[in-house]
Design a protein around this nucleic acid. Structure first.
Length: 480
RNA sequence: CGGGGUGUAGCGCAGUUGGCAGCGCACCGCGUUUGGGACGCGGGGGCCGGCGGUUCAAGUCCGCCCACCCCGACCA
């Protein structure tokens, strides 16, 4: 049961986040350092995320499969950049069945290698392509500093792995899946994101090009919320994923990979939550509406519960995820706070006065106090509730977008850039040199987040750091 | 892995010159309550992070170790 208040976001955003995750019962610390236990409420949220993504993957022609947790160490070593990137954070199994293993097994940090190996077995002809497979699973990366959902040693995600005959097709796939993520984030999670391309230093180990969706949290830090990589022929060459083309010539495939993890839950928390607790977007919320019956004695209870049950049936039949909080011995006020902590988007109260008047009270989670409260007729209640959930979903996206846009700046010089990244993002011309990127990081702790795909200026400009000619603009921001 | 901090009931903490291990919340029982975090009465719960030392006596003093948290370097 949730109890007591959270620290405010202004006081201490990090503590607010941690406390909220625990008190809303999304997750808990595990006895294993850096790992988390996802509790039923958090997992149901993840299942809803999975459902929406999986639907989109199937709609774009992908199928699911499952690959093993263990990967031979030698597989990782086959792609030079890949192993360099992941070596420091690998968990390695050296023993099995009481015997030392001949070759150590890596607990997968991602599955490009083992899937590449399998693809080389499965792909022979251009007729076998494209291969469009997704896997839902867990991976392990031995992180030094962890934070629930945002960075844990083990996390849950999906990883899509595709193989194509041509570079163009693989590049299109990379961007198609980035669009899927964008559509999901914006329209299901109500998290506004900017899609763009990662710099050379920020890209995935082994990729030719990494793309990302970046979201701004309420502390203005950036959160990479999903990534899609064009891997070129790097993994195809490492694992000999080859096919015979229509001219009977042997060619290497072009591959992609793309992933979105339980980190998205962190994005939702830090995008929408307030000082009362979590606020969940209705489309993903495990419980969309909680119904609190109110009564003083048995007579009132009988009449209130009659109406409560009728409305419960009606809303359930309309497909609304609803819970009746009929706990005895806790006051309605306690229940309000309890469900607000858990972020349930809408609350309905039914008391003796409502029974009398044929009304119910509705309270929107996104608008605290009187502003979010309304009294509506019991007539057509399913339509009223559905409409309100749609409105809440839209209001969350609108509020988050306004917050983000008001914290993106276009600094006029480097001095101003150093200022703005302390409390927002800078959108500036950049010459795309590692030196300038490193200088910003050194001076401000802000890194390049992405070169956005949309919204690039028509004209060339000058790099905000060194003044050299720059074709494109990039976002600089502190990041999680 | 460097710097700082904290370890006492599920959580948050107090514990004086070393002298019976406590408080608040939570939990259990009974009763009264219930439209914004109710109240009364009763109750259960401890390897005081671990190991060693000093002492008649250690939560308290000393040494070593461990764990976790925060800040840095690395990251979905």
């Amino acid at each position: 049961m949730a109890e007591e208040k959270l620290p405010t976001r202004a006081e201490n955003f990090a503590d607010w986040y941690n406390d909220l995750v625990l008190k809303a019962e999304l997750a808990d610390y595990s006895p294993v350092r850096g790992c988390m236990v996802v509790r039923p409420y958090g997992w149901t949220l993840w299942e809803n995320i999975q459902g929406q993504l999986d639907r989109r993957f199937k709609d774009t022609g992908h199928v699911n499969a499952a690959f093993p947790l263990f990967i031979p160490m030698s597989f990782l070593e086959k792609e030079k950049e890949h192993v360099k990137g992941f070596a420091p954070e690998l968990a390695v199994v050296t023993h099995g069945g009481g015997e030392k293993l001949e070759e150590p097994l890596v607990v997968r940090p991602t599955s490009e290698t083992i899937i590449g190996y399998m693809y080389s077995k499965w792909i022979k002809s251009w007729r076998d392509l494209p291969v469009l497979i997704n896997q839902w699973g867990n991976v392990v990366r031995w992180e030094l500093r962890t934070k629930l959902f945002l960075r844990t040693a083990e996390f849950y995600w999906q990883e899509g792995h595709t193989a194509h005959a041509t570079e163009q097709e693989a590049r299109e796939e990379t961007l198609r899946m980035l669009d899927v993520y964008t559509d999901f984030a914006v329209n299901e999670a109500a998290v506004p994101v900017i899609k763009g391309i990662k710099s050379e230093t920020e890209k995935f180990a082994g990729a030719v090009m990494s793309t990302t969706i970046e979201a701004m949290m309420q502390d203005t830090k950036a959160l990479q919320s999903g990534t899609s990589h064009f891997l070129g022929q790097n993994f195809a060459k490492a694992f000999e994923i080859q096919f015979t083309n229509q001219n009977n010539e042997l060619e290497f495939c072009y591959t992609t990979s793309w992933g979105l993890s339980t980190r998205m839950i962190g994005a939702i928390i830090m995008t929408h939550g307030d000082d009362q607790g979590l606020i969940l977007p209705p489309r993903l919320a495990p419980i969309q509406m909680v119904l609190v019956p109110i009564y003083k004695n048995d007579a009132e209870k009988a009449s209130v519960m009659e109406v409560t049950n009728r409305i419960w049936q009606e809303l359930k039949a309309a497909g609304i995820r609803i819970k009746v909080d009929d706990r005895e011995g806790v006051t309605p006020g306690f229940k309000y706070n309890d469900w607000e902590m858990r972020g349930v988007p809408l609350r309905m109260e039914i008391g003796p006065k409502d029974v009398e008047k044929g009304s119910v009270a509705l309270a929107r989670r996104d608008k605290p106090g009187r502003e979010g409260k309304s009294f509506v007729s019991q007539e057509n209640i399913a339509a009223t509730v559905s409409e309100m959930l749609v409105n809440i979903q839209a209001a969350l996206l609108e509020r988050a977008t306004a917050m983000r846009d008001s914290h993106i700046h276009d600094p006029k010089d480097y001095e101003e850039l150093k200022q703005v990244v302390q409390g927002g993002w800078a959108f500036s011309y950049w010459c795309e040199s590692k030196a300038c990127e490193a200088k910003v990081k050194e001076d401000t702790k802000a890194s390049t987040r992405c070169i956005p795909i949309d919204g690039q200026p028509e004209h060339v400009g000058t790099c905000i750091v060194c003044g050299a000619k720059a074709k494109r603009k990039v976002y600089f921001a502190k990041a999680y």
